[in-house]
Nucleic acid binder design. Structure first.
Lengths: 206, 206
DNA sequence: ATAATGAAAAATGTATACAAAAAATATAAT
DNA sequence: ATTATATTTTTTGTATACATTTTTCATTAT
């Protein structure tokens, strides 16, 4: 496991202090490496929104907040149906099979949040990659990456997983039967609904 | 000027090889620094789309291509009107004044592409920042950053600058007079038109 | 001639050491 | 007591040196 992944995992599971600057030496001791790879990882994490600058020096783990969640869902709802639309006719039976496999794995228990996040993206990836629009794809992936910081909520107290899974299977069925416009609508609604639920939950807990 | 900025400037002005991996030692000799800051800069530039991975090791400057330009414009046309919509009522007279100042500077000659890119964003920033939607704002800024790689075309052979400037001024007028829906429409159309022109141009030259 | 294998080289990744900058603390003045 | 300033300490930034990986190129077998 890469240092970058380890830190992400620790952020997801609240094993690192939120709101207090992360010190390079602390991290280098914690993960038993020198400061150079720590710096690399920090920069990458910052670029992906897992960390934000803190004054002139230092990075902090930003607190989860409903405004960010709302914006992320908003953008996803805008861009992902577009991407699926481009991909739609290029999605093969093999692709759908892979997507189902990812969903099946998600149903297993004992997964870490990091693993759940990766499986979740593995599912979406199948729907988006065949679009052959690398630039749009990268942005969507990045948004999903950022959104994965909120998975702890969606898979924890909210218990949204079952319903979400069901909609994912439905989506695959619509793709298989070529019902494009219905599929696009379901995807859009799925993202918006999950977003609203998440935002409401975040608002209520803070 | 930061190393990161210098490299960006050199990419914009084709002073670095396109399509061939950039070597860390080459760059460290070129800019007279060690490999450590070079690595930092490369990583940041990669995260922002100025560089892409090349196999297992090394980064290359990706060639400009109409597909990327199209995707960037598409996303901008989706997201920027949204952001302006949120910001609209919070834009102050002082903001508009600042935006005009940026446009005035853009009319001067002798600006480097890097400077033009920065002024261009300074203008847009005024329209988007008051929205107070940091997450959406960051993505939009990132898209504009990536799009600035194509400024060499828009400000060079295409001679689109004059027309673009005029629309920018119009947009400010609409904001001042509170004509929200017209302003949003103009912005959307502005981005789409510029995009189509750019894409057509890129298609024709390759 | 071509493909496969292995040795040499070149390139990146990482650790340590030092320099510069920022933050924290103590000291002095009002 | 509070603010301003100086000093120390902490933290980040960078250079150099070494380790590991990747690539390249020569050698050999088919």
């Amino acid at each position: 496991m890469q240092l970058y992944q380890k830190i992400k995992d620790d952020i997801l599971n609240n094993r690192l202090p939120v709101g207090r600057p992360l010190r390079q030496v602390e991290l280098s001791e914690r993960y038993q490496v020198s400061r150079i790879p720590v710096r690399d990882a920090l920069q990458k994490l910052k670029a992906e929104g897992w960390l934000v600058s803190h004054g002139k020096a230092g990075h902090i783990i930003p607190d989860l907040n409903w405004q960010e969640a709302e914006d992320l869902c908003l953008m996803r709802a805008d861009l992902e149906p577009r991407l699926l639309s481009y991909a739609f006719d290029s999605i093969t039976a093999e692709d759908v099979k892979q997507a189902r496999a990812a969903l099946a794995l998600l149903d297993k228990s004992g997964l870490s949040l990091l693993e759940k996040g990766e499986l979740n993206w593995a599912f979406h990836k199948v729907l988006y990659f065949p679009a052959n629009r690398p630039t749009l794809y990268k942005v969507v992936r990045s948004l999903n990456q950022q959104a994965s910081r909120y998975l702890g909520f969606q898979y924890g107290p909210m218990n949204y997983q079952d319903h979400s899974q069901q909609e994912h299977f439905e989506l695959l069925n619509l793709i298989e039967s070529g019902e494009k416009s219905t599929a696009l609508l379901l995807l859009s609604q799925h993202i918006k609904d999950a977003g609203q639920l998440l935002v409401a939950h975040l608002k209520s807990t803070n």
